[in-house]
């Protein structure tokens, strides 16, 4: 199962990817913003997306909307990982149809639970 990790911070990508690897997930592609994410998806379609919110060019919310708006991608689960933890932020994310939401900093356990929760339903 292929995972796409979208974050403008290389360090954050590493943190997320390291956590994923520690769960035994190996098939991971990366992108540094929403536009890059959409481009990467053309080459190889992921089955799970983990995206940051604050990014240049196309942020995570716009990216989520773009994915949901494309019939080919609409069914891909999206987990948003961000430091934005205000109520308004979460509501916006919910409205954009992210499947779940993790506030940074998170522990790998939390990340695993959130991924698990999405895959279980």
């Amino acid at each position: 199962m292929k995972y796409l990790v979208v974050d403008d911070s290389p360090t954050m990508r590493r943190i997320v990817i390291n956590a994923l690897k520690s769960f035994g997930i190996e098939d991971i592609i990366e992108a540094e913003d929403g536009i890059d994410g959409l481009n990467k998806m053309k080459d190889s379609k992921p089955e799970f997306i983990i995206t940051d919110w604050n990014m240049p060019n196309m942020n995570g919310l716009e990216f989520t909307k773009a994915v949901r708006g494309n019939p080919e991608y609409a069914s891909i689960p999206i987990l948003m990982v961000t430091t934005r933890g205000l109520k308004q932020d979460i509501i916006e994310a919910l409205q954009a149809k992210v499947n779940n939401y993790v506030v940074k900093p998170f522990t790998p356990l939390v990340l695993k639970e959130k991924i698990g929760a999405i895959l279980k339903t």
Binding site: A19, G24, E47, P77, P105, P108
Partner: peptide, 28 residues
């Protein structure tokens, strides 16, 4: 949200892929 979402899209591969996820290693 997820419930609604999954009623619309039922990805079959997903639940079986859940087993891919190992025990957790606290690294961070």
């Amino acid at each position: 949200v997820n419930k609604d979402f999954n009623q619309e899209h039922k990805p079959e591969s997903i639940s079986k892929n859940l087993s891919e996820i190992n025990d957790i290693k606290p690294v961070i």
